[in-house]
Amino acid sequence: MSQTAPHWITFANEKGGTGKSTTAVHVAVALAYRGADVVAFDLDHRQRTMCRYFENRADTAERRNIELPTVRCHTIEDLAPEEFAAFVEEHSAGADFIIVDTPGRDDPLARFAATQADTLVTPMNDSFVDFDLIGQVEGETFKVKKLSFYAELIWEARIKRGRQQIDQQRAQMDWVVVRNRTGHTEARNMARIEQALAEMSKRVGFRTAKGLSERVIYRELFPSGLTLLDKGHLGELGTSHLVARQELRGLVAALRLPGTAFPPIDEAAE
């Protein structure tokens, strides 16, 4: 794939434990399997979950003497936003996609990465605790009463991007709120969250997509750096694992990333 500038995907949520790094890794590997050149930047220099995943993946490939599609990953520490922008430009030359994984806390560099994204992915657990990142709801009616600081930040960034469309021919930011762990939500509460998300999406312009369920397999694969796409290297997959692969296929399709000439995930990962 060849394009004028890499497509920038930022995975951001100021709350931890939403499956942000797991989602980022699987999307990155899915793109690598489809032939894309992907470079990743891990802004959480303490945990380094994404870069550690790819280090484990490289170790497994060397130990087993196999080839695994992978991603170049850089850990970022103590850079100002303008320095980070220059670093990204230098290290993503010729790449098709930039993937940025941000820490689960308020961070100036994470905010900057969110505003720079072509596709902003905000994973959230299906609960009003996580919804609070986007907006506040009434306690009785569950109607949205106020935008959060984060939603206002992204709204302003999208307005600014709209002005750049004419001057720099830059596409509008696509903000996708990914609902992870939906199976752990009680049905009535899920309906309330769906209603609140639908109302909020009209106000700030994001889309929603179904994400990844809570599965032990995601944690078990971390030490090896393998993903559910690495068929032939995982042993016999159970039914739940096959369903998880289907979830991942659906998520990548829902992101509507450029590069429709790529083969479907299953064909590319054979």
Rank of each mutant, 00 (worst) to 15 (best):
L133Y: 13
F128A: 06
D130N: 12
G235M: 04
R163K: 09
A196C: 00
Q168R: 14
K20I: 06
N125A: 09
E194K: 10
G211S: 07
F128M: 01
A110V: 01
T22W: 04
T141I: 03
A171Q: 15
G205R: 00
G225I: 00
D44A: 07
T141D: 03
R249A: 01
M124G: 04
D96L: 10
E267D: 09
A95N: 01
R245N: 12
M190T: 12
I76G: 13
K15N: 10
I66E: 07
I265F: 09
H74L: 15
K231A: 14
A28F: 04
A58S: 11
R34F: 04
V177H: 12
A58G: 12
K202M: 08
M50E: 14
R179C: 04
R57W: 00
R64D: 13
D130F: 03
K146Q: 12
A191G: 02
K143A: 03
G235L: 04
H184L: 13
Y218T: 11
L221S: 10
R170N: 03
K146A: 09
G135E: 08
A117D: 07
T23D: 01
Q169H: 12
Q168F: 15
L221K: 07
N56Q: 08
I66A: 08
E236I: 08
I99A: 05
R245A: 14
F87P: 09
F128W: 03
V27A: 00
E77K: 15
Q3C: 06
E14Y: 15
L147H: 09
T122H: 02
D167H: 10
A151M: 08
H91G: 06
S2W: 07
L229V: 09
Q165L: 13
K210I: 12
S213M: 13
T4A: 11
R72H: 11
L257R: 03
D106L: 14
A12T: 11
